[in-house]
Design a protein around this nucleic acid. Sequence first.
DNA 1: TACAAGTATGAAGTATACTACATAGTTCAC
DNA 2: GTGAACTATGTAGTATACTTCATACTTGTA
Lengths: 126, 126
Amino acid sequence: MKLINQLSKETGIPIGTIRFYEKSGLFSGEKKQEVTTNNYVYYGDDVIEKLRFIQMAKAVGFTLAEIKEVVDAWYKKEISQKAQIEVLDKKLLQIDVKIKELKAMKKQIALCKYNIENRTEQDIII
Amino acid sequence: MKLINQLSKETGIPIGTIRFYEKSGLFSGEKKQEVTTNNYVYYGDDVIEKLRFIQMAKAVGFTLAEIKEVVDAWYKKEISQKAQIEVLDKKLLQIDVKIKELKAMKKQIALCKYNIENRTEQDIII
DNA sequence: TACAAGTATGAAGTATACTACATAGTTCAC
DNA sequence: GTGAACTATGTAGTATACTTCATACTTGTA
């Protein structure tokens, strides 16, 4: 079980951001009953896993609301099995769309590069 | 040459958003000298192309600032050829990272699906 | 020629995702 | 046992990317 500082160090995500994510309902830590002198919150390894998933998902343009849908389906949460699968399948389709878009962008940029590399003096007049 | 309404219809991007992009320096239209009664702005086909690129790039998590770097390199703009190529190569690498992240997410979600589908009654106690 | 629809401009408002600050209590190293 | 470092909580501020609103002028249609 880890404290917030350790989560931050292991993932590179600032403490403030981790707190913000927790407040947004993306995951939650727990207080240890055996510790009564403070109200420090401890996090399990599933939280590290979720944070890494959030990092990736954000990097490819998913919003926190969209990410929350997935992690809710992921870690049960009184949703029916059918609903869970539906959410995950929808997300898989969205991912495929994004991959296609990235591949289209690659093509477009590669073509652009080609044009620049083979540009002659005359072209510059345009 | 198209007016803003037509751009919006062809791309599905709201007029307000197109104006915002233009103000952000992502592209620009031109006023026709032969028309003196109004100050309507006309856009070439390159703008449609740029708008479609912006749509894709945004969908995969690039910011407008990042997108601006590319379209600036794209359509010349007094940048040296070497600098243009550098920007485009950097973007190609970023795209490959995103594709890898998407593939990793696919794996993770597929595994999650598998676990849900093969969950037994006992597991639910966890 | 009236009037709906389109265009330009500027300013203000909104949503998302942080980020910083202030305060207060806790733990740990020396 | 004291000070640096860590934790919790709440509030306010910031950046990005729009979105809406108000105003005013222009164009096209009946």
